[in-house]
């Protein structure tokens, strides 16, 4: 009796883990694991070239690490603590086969900042329950937030923003066979899928108050929900959607981006020393071309255009 009982238990545990695998594969099918930048041959060539970007990355002069400043404390500690996602394709995504390897525009910029302060890309990632980004900064759990963190005046009351370091916009994706929806203007009264904690959560109701919003925790889930018909459209960052549409012919991006999101680097409130330190760094990587190289290797792999002009530092309210 005891043996058969424990055998059964073991069997059930196996069954349970099998269910988990099914769940995970269910999430990623459709989203396409090839959305990972590295799997695109041109992108991987570009990604490889980031080694030279890192090798030639600017390092702050010793004088810039003012004694008692945040950057000096980070230097003492020997690592930069960053709030960034692990599941955002092109921006900050963990390689499932190599957990130490997190790639994407946000992730690579974070490494560049670490090199600037420490001389080496020593980053500790705290995956942001993004609903707590402000708290993570306020209580000093993280040094900076790289998390498609849209600069808003409300948020700027709680945190400081360096940058903006990237401008993007939200766009609309639908199933390929959908001919009724040709952009944000056609979403009135429709069910619209968004990623929880993305700018779309607030942007869609502003544009289309009659739309019903359904939010999912991750981008792959949201994409799956679109292909399964849980909503009429999926509103997300244009670049991300474009990359999905390349891999997954069952969806298409319609219309032009309807917002301009200026993403900033979140910092603890009222640390102007650290903010100007990071803004100086942003100017340096823009000037020496490494910003554009990183864009090409990550977001640029999804769209057929060359790197845009980086946004001007301090160009939006709240930055």
């Amino acid at each position: 009796m005891i043996t058969s009982r424990s055998n059964l238990r073991r069997g059930l545990v196996l069954l349970a883990s099998a269910a988990t695998v099914v769940a995970l594969s269910a999430c990623s099918s459709g989203a396409g694991s090839s959305a990972v930048p590295g799997s695109d041959p041109t992108a991987s060539a570009a990604a490889g070239s980031l080694d030279s970007v890192y090798a030639n990355a600017p390092v702050a002069e010793a004088a810039a690490l003012i004694p008692g400043s945040t950057m000096e404390k980070i230097k003492q500690r020997g690592k930069l603590i960053v709030a960034e996602a692990l599941d955002a394709p092109l921006l900050s995504q963990q390689d499932p086969t190599n957990p130490d390897d997190v790639e994407g525009f946000d992730a690579d910029l974070a490494k560049m900042l670490a090199i600037y302060i420490l001389g080496e890309p020593n980053v500790e990632i705290v995956p942001p329950a993004s609903e707590t980004r402000e708290a993570l900064l306020a209580n000093g759990t993280v040094d900076v937030v790289f998390n498609t963190y849209t600069i808003t005046e409300k948020r700027a009351e709680q945190v400081d923003f360096a940058g903006p370091y990237l401008e993007s916009g939200l766009a609309v994706a639908v199933k390929s066979d959908n001919t009724d929806i040709n952009g944000i203007d056609d979403l009135g009264g429709k069910t619209v899928i968004v990623g929880a904690n993305t700018p779309a959560v607030t942007a869609v109701p502003e544009e289309q108050p009659t739309a019903t919003i359904v939010s999912f925790a991750t981008d792959p889930q949201a994409l799956q929900a679109l292909t399964q018909g849980r909503g009429d459209a999926y509103v997300q960052d244009f670049t991300l959607l474009a990359s999905h549409a390349i891999d997954d012919k069952s969806i298409k991006v319609v219309g032009q981006p309807f917002t301009t999101e200026a993403y900033g680097i979140g910092l603890k409130k009222d640390d102007s020393q650290f903010k100007s330190f990071i803004n100086d760094w942003l100017l340096k990587i823009q000037a020496d071309g490494s910003w554009a190289k990183i864009w090409d290797a990550t977001l640029g792999s999804a769209v057929e255009s060359s790197a845009p002009t980086p946004p001007a530092i301090g160009s939006v309210p709240g930055s």
Binding site: E131, T152, A196, V201, F216, A217
Partner: peptide
């Protein structure tokens, strides 16, 4: 996490605007 707009989801949404976690 799977799109139901209940209390936690509403709190998330509100925080996205107000940034007062």
């Amino acid at each position: 996490a799977v799109g139901v707009v209940e209390l936690t989801s509403a709190a998330n949404k509100l925080n996205l605007v107000e940034a007062q976690p």
